[in-house]
């Protein structure tokens, strides 16, 4: 059974291809889809590549936000000045995503739509409050990433829609950012636990505002507003972080799998907050 391959060059050609092949799969970087097809976990009549549609690529800045085309590769994000300058958190998460080759191929839109609990960019995008443009031939809607991802591999994307843009608000200046990933090894690892953090420290050394997101400890990225609230107004001291860590361990909902047990994930999700002590010594953006 031969599959069709379509390489649309405009959005119009893409809509046309989708109309002809309603069961066609959208092929971005291929680093996830082609693995699933090989394993017999994805079936499709056609592969519709998003590789050659200029509207879906590139990074632009304006209106207090950074707009990222979904077919932008991870490497392009790393090389982009505005990402380096304004979105260090996203940059850090991409730096440790997959391998160099995977970063050259894989795209931000692909990482989002795959909706893996371990997706490296997702905790960062949650913390940054990213919003996603979902476009169909009929029009466009914008949803927060938190509402976009429903569960492992599940999103609110309708059959006629594509993810056409990622809008990341530019964070207020004066923050520190850290993406902390625990894998089974130090590179080419799938997160066993990950945590993204962006924090604004007041002049008197207490937390002004903090946003946190955890990966691999629940069906989707875990955010814990009660922990953020607890930390706001307090100094990032060992005692405070230990106490907050216990709240985190209680708040997350990990599972056992071949990579690690739930108990370990739960414990580390809390303890990893201690990494924020390092953050205090780091660069302020």
């Amino acid at each position: 059974m031969k599959k069709e391959f379509i390489l649309p060059k405009t959005l119009e050609e893409l809509w046309e291809a989708r109309a002809v092949h309603p069961r066609g799969a959208l092929l971005a970087g291929g680093t996830d889809l082609l693995v699933r097809i090989r394993a017999g976990r994805a079936d499709s009549q056609a592969l519709i590549s998003l590789d050659r549609i200029p509207d879906l690529r590139g990074i632009s800045t304006g209106d207090g936000e950074i707009f990222i085309g979904p077919a932008t590769t991870h490497q392009q994000l790393l090389d982009d000045y505005s990402v380096q300058k304004h979105l260090p958190l996203l940059r850090q998460s991409v730096e440790v995503l997959g391998s160099p080759q995977v970063r050259h191929m894989g795209t931000l839109g692909g990482n989002i739509c795959t909706a893996s609990p371990a997706g490296d960019t997702l905790p960062a995008l949650y913390v940054l409050g990213a919003r996603l443009d979902l476009r169909s031939p009929q029009g466009c809607r914008t949803v927060p990433i938190k509402e976009f991802i429903e569960g492992p591999g599940k999103t609110v994307l309708r059959k006629d829609e594509i993810l056409s843009g990622i809008r990341v608000p530019m964070p207020d200046p004066g923050f520190r950012a850290g993406y902390h990933k625990v894998g089974q090894r130090k590179a080419m690892a799938i997160a066993v636990v990950s945590m993204a953090c962006q924090v604004w420290i007041n002049d008197h050394g207490t937390v002004g505002r903090i946003r946190l997101g955890w990966g691999s400890v629940g069906p989707t990225v875990k955010t814990l507003p009660e922990v953020e609230k607890f930390l706001e107004g307090r100094p990032l001291s060992l005692e405070v972080l230990r106490e907050a860590g216990q709240m985190v361990s209680k708040g997350v909902t990990p599972i056992d799998d071949v990579r690690a047990g739930a108990a370990y994930r739960r414990l580390v999700a809390g303890r990893i907050l201690l990494r924020l002590l390092d953050l205090l010594r780091k660069e302020v953006f």
């Binding site: 089974q184 090894r185 130090k186 590179a187 080419m188 799938i190 071949v258 990579r259």
Partner: peptide, 16 residues
């Protein structure tokens, strides 16, 4: 077998 391929059977990389 639970570790069916190189995604779950973890080999050292150059940074390990």
């Amino acid at each position: 077998i639970l570790t069916t391929g190189l995604a779950t059977y973890i080999l050292p990389t150059a940074v390990d």
